[in-house]
């Protein structure tokens, strides 16, 4: 019985690992459905462009009119900050202007995985 459980755990490991890291392909689907109204990878539109966002200082992209709140923010976009932002941008940076929440953790993880590919 113990051996069976170990085998099952080993089989499940790749899936669990993929989930933890996020699925960038699914993240792109979500991006093109929910984010595309305001954002593009390569153009500042209603929202700022996203290429290079991972690892970039918040509110620092030239040529985009950020809210005062985000312009004055002092953090870098990484797994943690992107997750907090997508969960509830107003709670994370009061006074920001996005106000679009991604409520499911799985969706956020996949979106962040996609954003990481925009280098």
């Amino acid at each position: 019985m113990k051996r069976v459980l170990i085998v099952v755990a080993l089989l499940a490991f790749p899936t669990a690992q993929a989930r933890a890291e996020g699925d960038p392909a699914r993240g792109q689907e979500i991006y093109e459905s929910r984010c595309i109204a305001c954002h593009s990878p390569d153009a500042n539109r209603v929202g700022p462009m996203h290429r290079g966002v991972f690892g970039r200082k918040a509110g620092s992209l030239p040529g985009y009119a950020y809210s005062k709140a985000l312009k004055g923010a002092d953090f870098v976009w990484n797994d943690e900050t992107l997750d907090r932002w997508l969960t509830n941008p107003q709670a994370f940076v009061p006074g920001q202007k996005m106000n679009f929440k991604v409520t499911k953790a799985e969706d956020r993880t996949d979106l962040i995985a996609y954003l990481k590919t925009l280098r």
Partner: peptide
């Protein structure tokens, strides 16, 4: 179509806010 669908989703997405 891409912009319209995106806009529909954006409006739906901000409703709770």
């Amino acid at each position: 179509a891409k912009l319209e669908k995106g806009a529909a989703n954006a409006y739906l997405g901000v409703i709770p806010s």
